Each structure stands twice: as C-alpha cells, then as structure tokens.
Amino acid sequence: MVAGVLAAGLVAAGVTPAWACACGGFLPDVESRARAYGENALVEHSGGTERITLSMAVNGSAKKAAWIMPVPAAAKVELGDGDLFYRLDRMTRPKIVHRTTYWPFRNLGIMGSGRNTAGAPAPGAGVNVRQEMLLGPFAVARLDGSSGTAVTNWLRTNGYVVPPTLAANLTPYLTEKWEIVAVKLAPRQDGEPLTGATPPLRLTFASDRIVYPMRLSKGATTSQRVTVYVATEHRVDATKLPDPAVQPELLFAGRVQDQALPKPADYLTAYTVNYSDPGRITDDFTFAPAANDDAYQRVHVITRNEGLWSTIGVVFGGLLLIGGGAALLARRQVRRAARRAES
C-alpha cells in the first residue's frame, strides 16, 4: 500500500524550494506565503490490490502546485470521496472520560496531569509518459524514466520547480522500476488562488505488500509530520521504518463501519510520526499483520476540580454524617438501657 510523497511547484522560474509538509514538500508561488500544513492519507490493501487516497491542506493561497508520488506498479488515478477524511478523523478520535476531583492541589502535579500522554539530456529523453489526463482540478501524468535526472528534466520542462535533491532521491524508485505520478493542482480559473483542502486523489495498483513511500522526504529541510490510516483485513504493525531511530505513535486500531471500507478491509490502524531531521530518512514504511487484532483507542481524561472549599465542604459533610450517626446510635443505646432498667 502506498501513500504518496507530496511535492509542489510553480510554472514561474527562479522559485527556491521550501519543503514544509508531510511526506515531501510544498512550494508556494512568488507572490504568496502559502504553506501546506497537513496531509491526510488512507492506504488500503486487499487481495493483492493497493489503494491510496490523499488530500493536502493549504494555509494561505498559491496559484499553482503539484504532487510527485512514486508507486510500485502502474496506477489507476481518479478522484476520491470528499468526506472521507472527516469520517476517518471522527472514527479515530480519543475517547473522552470525565473525572471529578476535590483535591485542592492538583495543579502542583501531585495527583498527575489527567492526560494520556552529468551532462543533462535533452528534455524528455529517457522518460516514458504512460498517460496524461485531467481530473477535476488535477492534471495528471504517469511516467517512468531511465534516471532521476531524466525525470527531473521532464518535470522542469513541464512547469515543475525541481529541488536540487529530487533527482538523487528519485533514483532508488526508478532503479526498482517504480512509476512516478506527477499531479499538478491548479485553480479552475486563471487568477483564482488555491487554498484550503484539495479534493482527495485516489491511486489504485497491484501490490503484494503494504508500503508507504517516504524516501523523497529526505530532501525536506523542515520537520515532517506524517499521519497514515491503514485499512486492511487485520491490525498492522510497522515492520520497516523510514528512520529507525524514530518510532511512530499508534493513534487507533479497531474494526470500523464505513462505506469506503468494505469488508474484508474494515480493520483500521492509524499511525502518526514527526521527523524533526528528515535528512535521516533512508527507507519507506512497510506494514504487515500484527500478532493479534486487539483494539486500541486513545483516552483523553477531562478532570473537573472542585477546589479547596468543596474539599472542606465534603470533609465537614462527612464528619457531620459520621457525628450524626454516632449520636443516633448513642441515643438508641441509652433508650435500650432505660427499658432494661424499668423491667
């Protein structure tokens, strides 16, 4: 299963790449300060078929942008479900637990915080363009190439701003005969800015393993946050890490009901990870079935502290109850003793 590596570029020349978002980078146009602040990716695997759906969120506005996504086999590219990631977010949110405490010094931490914590070839040489199409606001090109330099020359000639490290980072994928999907995002009308969340894009291809490409992200110069929802028949573990020193955080594991996740691919496992030093990334994510299908959901505890006076009230109330009970018991004992004396 593959989730794409995000890159963005402009037709305008002379723009310096500024990598800034999950699984790759975002390049704003000359006139804007737009940045990509998030990327959602759902990767699905069932019966030897892999599918990725992803959407990028842009803060600010840009006139043009693009994704570069390596995939291990020829891909079918289409638009995805616009509400998908809203539903996934709701399904994997933490469980809220409310708790009341009368401890007057909880903010001191005594009781805990209440949280779960070479010479360039001619343009186009060495590149095979398998398909070009228009999908909504996307212009899609499926490519393979003889080298990273050949592919980046094609990208540059066709209006992409190419970071200096992109050719070297593409080379391992091209050596392994992966396909490169280049996707331009552009407003429907000239002059209209690109902002907010992009429509989800879905890629489907054959694969005998679950893999999430991350090697292009080593070219990033800022911290990279990646969140991946993996939908398959069983819970999955991350068996290979982009940076072995950085462990992903498990957000959710369990069976879910959603029209986009038909059986048997209805077990959802969600991970998130932040790479503060993307240059240490050397590999892709791979996932495999876990030892069991144990469910997991984060818990967020909301503590209501009634404070010192409530504590005093509770203590005195308890003492009054105890005192009243003792007095009642004493009166009963006196009455019993009097009745015995009279008899």
Rank of each mutant, 00 (worst) to 15 (best):
A8C: 15
A182V: 12
T53W: 01
A338K: 14
A238F: 09
G324T: 08
I210C: 03
Y173S: 01
R93V: 06
A125K: 14
T286Y: 03
A18R: 12
G82L: 10
L250N: 04
G159K: 05
W178E: 03
Q259K: 14
D283Q: 10
R331E: 09
M1Y: 02
P199C: 13
D190Q: 12
Y267W: 09
H234N: 09
L170E: 00
L241C: 04
V211I: 12
Y296V: 15
G279E: 08
R304E: 09
I210W: 00
I52S: 04
G254T: 14
R339F: 05
P199V: 11
T198I: 06
I312H: 00
T195R: 04
E192A: 13
G126N: 06
P72Y: 11
V97Q: 12
L134I: 11
T311P: 00
L42H: 02
T227C: 04
Y173H: 03
R225L: 08
G159Y: 08
A270V: 15
R336N: 11
S310F: 14
A327D: 02
T221Y: 02
T117A: 14
Q247E: 13
L135N: 08
R340S: 13
L174N: 02
A260N: 15
D266G: 11
I312G: 00
G318K: 08
W154H: 04
A186L: 13
A22T: 02
V11H: 05
G136D: 05
N116P: 14
T149P: 00
R35C: 06
A338S: 10
D284C: 02
R336I: 07
R335K: 10
Q247F: 08
R331S: 09
P123W: 13
I302C: 01
L268F: 07
L42C: 07
